[in-house]
Nucleic acid binder design. Structure first.
Lengths: 101, 101
DNA sequence: TTACATGGTTTGTATTGCAAACCTGTTTTC
DNA sequence: GAAAACAGGTTTGCAATACAAACCATGTAA
């Protein structure tokens, strides 16, 4: 078996969870998104999105900024450099796996 | 966001677990493998491999045949048509995701 | 007989993904 | 101006998971 395939076991588990893959893919494209936009686009419940964002934040993959739009809260999220790189690496690894099966 | 990306949330969870992805990738290539060969190739503990194989068997993705090589047990595994197709679909979905980010 | 491989399976545990319930404030309704 | 409804999230409860360690049944060696 090729190393590309075996190395797949070391894939970034944080990004390998589909909900989070989607969240990060969105953030990768738009640079900044608010909570509700992310929720709609990713098709997640609030609780779910909140939990996933917390994990991504804890890993320093995303930065979360809590502000206000007038008087209502507004949570803005954007990918950090670390998160951006992790996502690029993840894609490379997946791609390499697929190409080597 | 493109549908390819959103549809990623519906990815086959059984195959999306790296250990199982590797197991199935091996079986996809060799048609038939025994337990210990799989263990070495996939780099898993016996317990782990046993558990993953059980899940794949329950989903009818693999067939497990317990025979003997002389007097010692020999467990042979091979992909079913269903498993083969599921793996092909999985790869397509992943590929489509990557290409559309 | 006792020890030690071989080929696995079962058990224990910590982590997870998810939805439902909850919370804090704001706006509307009466 | 109190009560109800809503917006924007967070916390809680639970079932399912991945993993390794312990276990088991059989066969071989000392």
């Amino acid at each position: 078996m090729s190393d590309e395939i075996r190395s797949f076991s070391g894939v970034d588990r944080l990004l390998h969870e589909p909900s989070r893959t989607i969240i990060v893919a969105i953030l990768y494209a738009v640079e900044s998104a608010d909570f509700l936009y992310l929720q709609r686009e990713a098709g997640l419940t609030k609780g779910n999105l909140s939990a996933h964002l917390s994990k991504l934040e804890k890993a320093k993959y995303v930065e979360i900024e809590k502000t206000y739009k007038g008087k209502i809260p507004l949570t803005l999220c954007h990918l950090t450099d670390k998160g951006r790189k992790a996502f690029e690496d993840y894609r490379e690894q997946i791609k390499s796996f697929i190409d080597n099966v």
